[in-house]
Amino acid sequence: MPDAYRKTLVRQISQHAHSEIIGMQPEGNWITRAPSLERKAILIAKVQDEAGHGLYLYSAAETLGTSREELVEQLLTNKAKYSTIFNYPTLTWADVGAIGWLVDSAAIMNQIPLARCSYGPYARAMTRICKEESFHMRQGFDIMLTLSRGTPEQKAMAQDALDRWWWPSLMMFGPPDTESVHSADSMRWKIKRFSNDELRQRFVDQTVPQADVLGLRMPDPDLHWNAGRGHYDFGQIDWDEFYRVVRGDGPCNHQRIQHRIAAHEDGAWVREAATAYARKHAAEAIAAA
């Protein structure tokens, strides 16, 4: 396997893994405050899936020779990237709905082509992940639907969440094609099959009608159907904000990493204890076998 290809694959897989793990935080934030027992159960299952996805992906990356330890270290020392969307805060229950509806469907759109990608273990992880994520998207939309049909306060909550999550969701597809550094190589090696702009357009076209069903207003005055193109035209994305968040100056970047560092450091004594126990009893296990 050529080295440059391997490096690109590891980068792409691990970035995805880190995103899943970090993504647990904004949603995990609402588990204890979920407003019904069913919603609580669904949210716990969703966040649990995300941990699982991170695990499938780290395990695929490990087959390429980079250990879990190294990958975790890269994340905690800010050497690795993860999806910028998780650097935004979840301020209301409606944010949980918006994430499921917008962020997960954008993620699925990015991911489905990868299930057919050229590297076996990655493709297999992706197939599993895509199957599990289709539930994530629906639960998000269902939350938004319930809110938009609820009390005036609930509807306002849903609208406010859409206002705050729409543009960051569009940014999830990355910089415009003309500026994307890694895309060309990834596309040549068939790790990435569609361009950023193509996917972004597809996402807009798919999502606008869903917002109509919700009776919510898109926070973009320039959004309108272009019959000539057969697509929605949409407004200018604030790329300054995008690069700011990528650089580390988003609302939650610092907090997200600090949280992971704390979990990792606080958990060190637990991992050491488990290892110590295993060593002490390894001799017995061999004797018993």
Binding site: M24, Q25, I44, A45, A51, G267
Partner: peptide, 26 residues
């Protein structure tokens, strides 16, 4: 347990804690 998910000592434990929480909630 629901409040502990995303801060367990390992990711495998996050999955395990969530499992117990879900069963108890059920």
């Amino acid at each position: 347990l629901g409040g502990l998910i995303a801060q367990a000592p390992t990711m495998e434990e996050d999955v395990a804690l969530a499992n117990v929480s879900l069963d108890l909630l059920g």
